[in-house]
Design a binder for these strands. Structure first.
Lengths: 155, 155
DNA sequence: CCAATTGGTTTTATGATGCAACCACACAAG
DNA sequence: CTTGTGTGGTTGCATCATAAAACCAATTGG
């Protein structure tokens, strides 16, 4: 079995996230879903991807609880794919990816859109990491700690 | 050409980011590099991945300007891979992935570590998106705007 | 009831991944 | 300098995933 090394059982939360949405299309599908797309054809059209792999990806996202299928909505007997709370929870990931590109891309002039505050129309600030008490944290201000009280599991 | 659909020319900044680090291993390599790993063998050992694909990934990350090779550092004539500023800039992405897993994973008890404020030892807050003036923004408070003044390019 | 659209599945070709074996070079000991 | 060992890869398959296109069933629309 040479599979694609699933990180499902890995104890690293980053690996576990990547297991669900670490492929080439899933985050783009979610991005479009956040934009309001719901139908198979809408995704296929907007993303220009092959229908078979869209089909596989949608099923996987549903299995992971990121999307769920809704019976209808516009009257027709077709099916729709809508984000669950877990799916909408990926928003910060998308923002982080976007901001990284905006900051470091070698050809920023090719980037078509910027994320702005709807009220003022001004770009949003970079994502901030803060401590519980509100202090702004840099990567160096953080560290990893073993999870507290793992009920069972010897070590 | 059945390639893996490169998003290099895409105008969506999320797609452009994914083009650089949207595969199964790159972000994990970066994660370890942020932890201080530098040598080929260290990565191979820690991640348990095949050496050939580690080799390919490292080269790709160097090409993307995320890692750079340093001649030595510990005396030996071997080579090291160290993060560039662009590479260190992925930190928020990793934090976002981590927090998503911490919040939504179906088996959170399997997560080994939590990210804490080094000073207090308390978990860091969720990443916050703020407007220029400091207002906390939800996804619904944001919108996408075409990039201003694209020098050239007809539309 | 006929035709087109939607929402897929199947088929086939090719690229990517994974494992194992191999190899070149550095370095250390004799 | 010669042999041995560890580091840092590359090369060969075997297998899996991806992509494009053809095909198909059910749903509309007329």
């Amino acid at each position: 079995m040479v599979k694609r090394t699933s990180f499902e059982g890995d104890s690293c939360p980053i690996a576990r996230s990547l297991d669900a949405l670490g492929d080439w299309w899933s985050l783009l599908i979610i991005r479009e879903a956040l934009f309001g797309l719901r139908r198979f054809g809408e995704f296929q059209n907007k993303l220009g991807m092959a229908k078979n792999i869209l089909s596989v990806r949608l099923r996987a996202l549903v299995d992971h609880g990121i999307l769920e299928t809704a019976p209808a909505s516009d009257g027709s007997a077709y099916q729709e794919y809508v984000l669950t709370p877990k799916g909408r929870g990926t928003f910060p990931i998308l923002v982080a990816l976007r901001q990284w590109s905006e900051e470091f891309d070698d050809h920023p002039e090719e980037i078509a859109t910027i994320l702005v505050d709807r009220e003022k129309g001004r770009p949003v600030k970079k994502l901030e990491m803060r401590a519980e008490d509100g202090r702004l944290l840099s990567p160096a201000d953080t560290t990893l700690k073993p999870r507290a009280a793992p009920r069972r599991r010897s070590a």
